[in-house]
Design a protein around this nucleic acid. Structure first.
Lengths: 224, 224
DNA sequence: TCCATATACGGACTATAGTCCGAATCGGAT
DNA sequence: ATCCGATTCGGACTATAGTCCGTATATGGA
C-alpha cells in the first residue's frame, strides 16, 4: 500500500473518511523506487539478524547503501518503515476482508464477519507484535496515525452498523452514528497491540485461551 | 505515593498482585529529599512555562539546580517524573475510592461504583492528558509499567467480581477468575489516555457527549 | 545527442534521553 | 567536635532519531 503510493504520500492524511486506496501522487523516479526496495529489503534482513532493537536508522542506511536523507525521503520516520514492512504482510488479509469468501469476506452476517475479523486480526497482530509495537511507538497517539488504523476501524464500524440495522441492504457506508463509531473504536482499543503484548508477554497467557474471552467482550460491545 | 517511598522504589514492581502501598525501602537522606522536591517543583514550573514539549531533562536539571545524575537517581526516567507529578494530583482520588463516601467509595453496589469510577477517572485523565500521555510514552507498554495502572485495574477487577457474585459479603479480594481480569483490562483499554486523546483532540468530541457512550460500553463489558 | 532544471542523494549536524564514575557531601558513631 | 564509610552529586559522555542543504543525477525537450 505504502509501496504503491508515492513516498511520504500524504494520501488521505487520515481524516478517516476514505479507505486508504486513493492512489494519487507522482509516480516516483526509477532510482528512488530502487532505493525504496533496497531499504525495505535491508530492513527485513536487519530485523532478521538483530531483531527490532538492532534496527537503527544509521545501520539501516549503511546496510541499504543509502544516506539517511534518502531514508527520510521515502519514509516519514522509523515507525513509518515498520508500517511499510507490515503493509506487505497484511495486503492479502485486506483483500480477503474486502473480496474474499465469507465469513471474513462479504456475504456473511455482520456478527459472524466480526468474529472472523477479530480472530484474523489478533493472529496478525500476535504474529507481528514487535513490528506493530514499533509502528505504534513514537508517542501513544502514533497508533492512530498509521494508514492501517482507519481501515481496520472503518471495517469494524461498518460491521457493527450492519448488526444494528440488518434490514438495510446496502451497508450504510456513508456515516454511521456517533455511538456506532465509538463502539468500533472501543473494539479496536481492546484489540490494541500494547494490550495484546501485556496479555501475551507479560501475563504469559496464550492466544488460544485469550481469543474466546476477547470474542465475548467484542461481541457484547458490538451488540445493539 | 512515589513521594513517600524511596527513589526508584522498586516497590511491588508491578506483578499486579498488590496495591501500590508497600512502604518498604530506606528513608531517603535529607538532601536527597530536598532535591527531589526541587526537581518536582522545577518540573511543575517548567510545565507551566513551556508545556510538555519544553520539559527536557537538561533544562529541568538546570532549573532545579541539580545534575542529570540526580534526576535519574530520583526518577527512573522522564515518564517517571510525569508519573510522580500525577501522583500528587491523584492521591485524593485514590483515597476517595478506598475510604470516601459512596458511590465512588465503598458501600454502593459494584455497578454504581464502577459508573462513578469511570466518570471520575475519565475526568482525571482528560484534565491531565499531556502528563498522562507523557507517562505512557516510552514504548506503548509504558502504560502498564507505572504503579498506578495496577491500582486502577485492580479496582475495576474487584468491582466487576462483585457484580458477578453479589452474594459474597467479602469481596473476593484474592484472585478473580481469568475472564473477570480480562474484562477489567478491556475496560481499562477503552479508558486509555491515547484513546481519549483521539476522541477529544483529534475527533473534537466533548467529554460530556463521550462519557455516556463510554459508560454504556463499560457497563456491557462488565455485565456478567 | 546534449542541455536545463527539477528531483533525489548523502552525510554532517542538531537535539535529546539516558549512562557512568570520580569527587563531594552527608550523618551517625566516637 | 571530628572522623569515616556510605551515599549522593554533577556534568561529560554515548547512542539514536530526525533535519538540512550543497551536490549529483535523472528526465524530457530542442
Amino acid at each position: 500500500m505504502d509501496d504503491i503510493n508515492g513516498p511520504k504520500s500524504g494520501c488521505g492524511r487520515g481524516n478517516g473518511k476514505f479507505l486508504p486506496l486513493v492512489p494519487s501522487q507522482a509516480p516516483l523516479r526509477a532510482d528512488a523506487q530502487r532505493n525504496r526496495r533496497k531499504i525495505l529489503d535491508a530492513a527485513t534482513g536487519l530485523l532478521a539478524d538483530k531483531g527490532v532493537d538492532g534496527l537503527t536508522m544509521d545501520e539501516l542506511a549503511r546496510r541499504a547503501g543509502v544516506g539517511k536523507g534518502t531514508l527520510y525521503r521515502n519514509f516519514t520516520d522509523k515507525p513509518g518503515i515498520a508500517s511499510a514492512l507490515l503493509d506487505d504482510r497484511v495486503r492479502d488479509m485486506h483483500a480477503r476482508m474486502l473480496q474474499g469468501p465469507p465469513p471474513l469476506g462479504p456475504g456473511a452476517p455482520g456478527g459472524e464477519r466480526l468474529t472472523a475479523f477479530v480472530d484474523a486480526y489478533l493472529r496478525h497482530i500476535a504474529g507481528n507484535l514487535d513490528l506493530v509495537l514499533l509502528t505504534e511507538s513514537s508517542s501513544p497517539k502514533g497508533r492512530f496515525d498509521r494508514q492501517s488504523y482507519p481501515f481496520w476501524r472503518r471495517h469494524v464500524e461498518i460491521l457493527i452498523a450492519e448488526m444494528w440495522t440488518p434490514t438495510a441492504p446496502e451497508p450504510t457506508d456513508a456515516n454511521p452514528s456517533d455511538p456506532v463509531r465509538t463502539r468500533a473504536e472501543a473494539v479496536m482499543a481492546v484489540l490494541s497491540a500494547a494490550q495484546l503484548d501485556q496479555w501475551l508477554n507479560r501475563q504469559g497467557r496464550t492466544l488460544e485461551e485469550l481469543i474466546p474471552q476477547i470474542q465475548t467482550i467484542v461481541s457484547v460491545i458490538a451488540a445493539p
